[in-house]
Amino acid sequence: MKGLLRGDGHGRAASDVSARSMWELAEPVHDLVYFTPEARQEADRAGMRGFWMGYVAMRAAPLGVVHASVVVSSFYVFHPDRVTRALPDAWRYATPSDMLAARERAVDLSMRRLFGEDVVRSARMAEAADLAWDAAAAADTAGRVLGGANQALNRPELPHVRLWQAATTLREHRGDGHVAVLVSRRVGPVQAMVLKAASGESDGAMLREGRKWDAATWQGAEADLWARGWIDDVGRLTPRGAAERDAIEAETDAAAEGPWRAVGRDATVRLAELLTPLARKVLASGVIPSGNPVGLTGAPRRDAGGAGSR
């Protein structure tokens, strides 16, 4: 992965592509809908009241008007209050279709600003969009609610927006699989964040506060993982905890391989080459907040003492 994001940009490490490396390359593109000023601007313009209402409504929009409990379950690591403060109120101000249009406008504007018109209008962008769309269309979404809802959306006409939507479908497909792995290994929402932050990937305080968990619940999750022997007295992974976390990530990767097997190695390698400069541009721009709430290896992070989640 280091070669793909930090190498010479000519595919020297492309032979190493995998479900994990493709996530690392597509995730920064997807993340534009969370962290760019255009995302907040378009959410506000659609009628949302504050960042979190916009976040929840934009991300949940492919599901349609469903009970908040469906969204709580799908998002997994968020406290129910984070979702129920946004839904169903958001649908008083805008419809899910309005929010789908708002997020497309947001990524259109943010990609034009960040990458430039020449890149957005290039043949490479169109090629990347079509390759990513083929992979997203090939994803098996059985049991994957957010992945399936995104996969069912119409194909955007603009290539760069199409690339973003494909990256989003693939990201939610992977996330749904990750949740299934966590559930199967008895790792609850807060334990998942504690485990990830204990690895040093993300800032625990940012995750806890952003996902609206109180300190007592967080400490309870830490106590649970300590009792399992997964973290030590200062909140760092023990060897056993590292092994468990590696197993979770390996199972998540295995569950996300389907789209890449379906399109084949040549198409995957080519898409990795096309995504690499885009991912680098996003990571270098500072769009993803320090503290790395999305858990990317190349994203900025604080000197965190423990806790995190995808």
Rank of each mutant, 00 (worst) to 15 (best):
A262M: 02
A138N: 01
W230H: 03
D266S: 12
R121G: 14
L170N: 03
G147T: 11
S21T: 14
G9L: 10
T217C: 09
W91Y: 03
G147K: 12
M58Q: 15
W91P: 04
L271V: 04
R112E: 15
V17S: 13
A57M: 08
R144P: 00
T141L: 02
G50V: 07
A138W: 03
A215P: 12
R40V: 06
A68P: 12
A299K: 07
R245W: 11
G177H: 07
G143L: 03
G143T: 03
M99D: 10
D8V: 04
L100F: 09
V161T: 06
P300T: 02
W226Q: 14
M53I: 07
R245H: 09
D253F: 07
V70N: 00
S122D: 09
S199I: 00
R103G: 11
L146P: 00
A43V: 12
A138K: 04
S202H: 02
M206N: 04
P277L: 03
S202T: 06
N292T: 01
W213L: 09
A39E: 15
A227W: 02
V83R: 09
A198W: 10
E157L: 14
G9I: 03
Q219T: 01
L153H: 08
G286M: 05
M111D: 11
F51A: 12
L207V: 02
F115K: 05
K212E: 14
V29N: 11
V29W: 03
S309G: 10
G286A: 08
S290Q: 14
W226S: 13
A255L: 08
K281R: 15
L146S: 02
D89L: 13
W164Q: 06
G306H: 08
A101L: 06
S69F: 00
T84V: 15
L109H: 11
D81V: 13
A137P: 05
S285K: 12
R155T: 09
P28R: 03
V263Q: 01
L114A: 08
A86L: 04
P277G: 05
V194C: 11
D16Y: 00
L114T: 07
F78Q: 10
P80Q: 11
